[in-house]
Simulated assay, not measured.
Amino acid sequence: MSRQPPDDTPYSRIIATCSLLEIPPAWLEQTAPGGIIVAPFGTEYGGEQIIRLTVNDDGTSASGQFTRGSAFMRLRHQRTDRPSFDAYLHGKEWPAHGVRSTTSLSPRATGGWFEQFVIGSGVPGTFWRTERYDNDAYTLWLYSRDTLSWASADYERDRTRYEVYQSGPRNLWDELEAAYRWWADQGRPGYERFGLTVTLEGQHVWLDSPGNPVPQH
């Protein structure tokens, strides 16, 4: 991505066949005004959709809507590290400084492919793992990329409240729940109402229009 573009740029189309966490800003500079960028776009938390972006007249931004779900291998240099759980306990035994609470939101409700995309759009720098037990029970573990925060939520069948532990400067389950409930409050919109705007400085996922970014929790 850091190499100089060839002499025949700008291109009218750029099509990626690998999943991206971030659209490289160089692609804006290498695409002609009005040109199209099509790429699988996923969040660090999970979920992935195909984005179709149109570059603006001066090549400083691109915007467009998602067109369908997808599942591609992540671009190699955008794959993030997934530290072990021990890195989050910082030498202490579980639950370390974890604070217990309960929630009415089932961890199972948050695990769908599109739900992961919505959560990842509103809860950046976070990933998850599961630890499974008998009778479909499991623990959903949430981790911040910086190893400072973690959370766990226990799922068991036929329960209406679920045990949660959270530790660190970020309350990751609270953030996840806020992102999920925001989506539910909007009427659980599908991919066709979401879009992405990319500039030379960054990017944001939005609902219905670029002026309505997905809130960060």
Results as ranks from 00 to 15, higher is better:
5 P>E: 04
10 P>I: 03
13 R>C: 00
16 A>R: 09
19 S>F: 09
20 L>D: 10
20 L>S: 08
23 I>V: 14
24 P>V: 08
26 A>R: 14
26 A>L: 11
33 P>I: 07
37 I>P: 11
38 V>P: 09
41 F>C: 12
43 T>K: 03
44 E>V: 12
45 Y>L: 08
49 Q>A: 13
50 I>L: 12
53 L>W: 00
54 T>R: 06
55 V>G: 02
55 V>P: 01
57 D>L: 04
58 D>V: 06
59 G>A: 05
59 G>N: 11
65 Q>P: 09
66 F>G: 01
68 R>Q: 13
70 S>T: 15
71 A>G: 15
75 L>M: 13
75 L>T: 15
77 H>Q: 15
78 Q>R: 08
78 Q>C: 06
80 T>A: 07
82 R>H: 12
87 A>V: 06
101 S>P: 03
103 T>P: 04
104 S>K: 13
106 S>K: 09
107 P>L: 01
107 P>R: 01
109 A>R: 10
110 T>K: 04
111 G>W: 05
111 G>C: 11
112 G>H: 11
118 V>M: 11
123 V>P: 04
124 P>K: 00
125 G>K: 05
125 G>I: 02
127 F>H: 12
133 Y>G: 13
134 D>L: 14
136 D>T: 15
143 Y>A: 01
144 S>M: 01
151 A>Q: 07
161 R>T: 14
165 Y>V: 07
166 Q>K: 12
172 L>R: 04
173 W>Q: 09
174 D>C: 11
175 E>F: 03
176 L>D: 03
180 Y>I: 05
182 W>F: 04
185 D>K: 13
189 P>F: 01
198 V>D: 07
199 T>H: 02
205 V>L: 02
209 S>T: 15
213 P>T: 10
214 V>M: 06
216 Q>N: 13
